[in-house]
Simulated scan of single mutants.
Amino acid sequence: MRYVKWTALALLVLFVASFLHYTLPQHDVVRIVGTNTQRMDLGENTWFFSAPDTGNATTIDGNRDVKFIEAIYPNGKPMVYRNEDTGWGWPPYFKVNSFDIQAQATDLTSTEAAPKWVLVTHYGWRSQLFTIFPNAVRLKQVEGPDVTVIPWFNIFFFLMVAGIVFMAVKMWMQFRERTIDPALDDMGEAWDGVEARAVAARKGARTNVGRFRAWLRGLGQ
């Protein structure tokens, strides 16, 4: 049973960590080498794509145009971002400017000989196996590939979560101290009283039986 409990806890932690890693903003410094729009037939990977751009009609069969931003890391590895609106859906980035970001990405396109380094803020994962792409939500030109990026939002988010957890634990401890523990103590005292009365009843019963037996012996004499 202990292994089942720890396995369930580990799976829960893994799920929460994966959810946060997918949803929270991440930052890449890359060189943009191209932009394009591609018709996509979405299937099992539909969960990893946003809804159609805000203001556009939805499609029933999952076939729609998706804007992409092609980039290269400083170490030469490629990366491809999708550029889709999130609108008022999840995750709550409220992104409605995908066309503007596409134009900005096109303007920031550069070559290896004359690179323009761009800080891409995005969420999501890149998987070639499942054909999923992170969604770029913001572009900003930076001086070079070694720029220091401090994830202020993530820091604030985890501090806020830690504060909420701390307050919840404190409230639970106070609730337990003021409500549950006294109730348990009262239950324990009540049970002790019941046990005491049961012991007294047993003693009384034995005494009465003894008296009855003594009375019977007296009759026989």
Rank of each mutant, 00 (worst) to 15 (best):
residue 214 A to L: 11
residue 173 M to H: 12
residue 22 Y to M: 03
residue 150 I to H: 14
residue 220 G to I: 06
residue 198 A to K: 13
residue 150 I to M: 10
residue 5 K to Q: 12
residue 185 D to W: 10
residue 50 S to H: 08
residue 66 V to C: 02
residue 26 Q to P: 00
residue 44 E to T: 08
residue 203 K to E: 14
residue 122 H to R: 11
residue 107 D to A: 15
residue 156 F to C: 09
residue 110 S to E: 05
residue 19 F to D: 06
residue 94 F to Y: 13
residue 71 A to R: 01
residue 40 M to D: 01
residue 132 I to T: 15
residue 132 I to S: 03
residue 45 N to V: 00
residue 217 R to W: 09
residue 198 A to L: 12
residue 199 V to Y: 08
residue 215 W to H: 15
residue 149 V to H: 06
residue 162 A to G: 02
residue 32 I to Q: 00
residue 96 V to L: 02
residue 103 A to H: 10
residue 138 R to P: 01
residue 110 S to I: 08
residue 219 L to I: 12
residue 31 R to L: 04
residue 212 F to S: 12
residue 162 A to N: 07
residue 83 N to A: 14
residue 127 S to Q: 08
residue 203 K to W: 08
residue 141 Q to N: 07
residue 58 T to I: 05
residue 169 V to P: 01
residue 130 F to R: 09
residue 177 E to L: 11
residue 164 I to D: 01
residue 147 V to L: 08
residue 150 I to C: 07
residue 211 R to H: 10
residue 137 V to N: 01
residue 115 P to W: 01
residue 51 A to D: 10
residue 33 V to P: 02
residue 205 A to Q: 09
residue 113 A to R: 09
residue 209 V to M: 11
residue 194 V to M: 11
residue 2 R to N: 11
residue 71 A to N: 00
residue 204 G to F: 03
residue 127 S to E: 10
residue 108 L to H: 04
residue 63 N to R: 14
residue 104 Q to Y: 05
residue 99 F to E: 15
residue 221 Q to Y: 14
residue 18 S to Q: 06
residue 207 T to F: 13
residue 11 L to Y: 04
residue 218 G to S: 11
residue 72 I to Q: 12
residue 175 F to S: 12
residue 143 E to L: 10
residue 91 P to L: 05
residue 5 K to V: 15
residue 95 K to C: 05
residue 210 G to Q: 06
residue 20 L to F: 10
residue 65 D to Q: 15
residue 199 V to L: 12
residue 120 V to F: 06
residue 50 S to C: 08
residue 130 F to E: 14
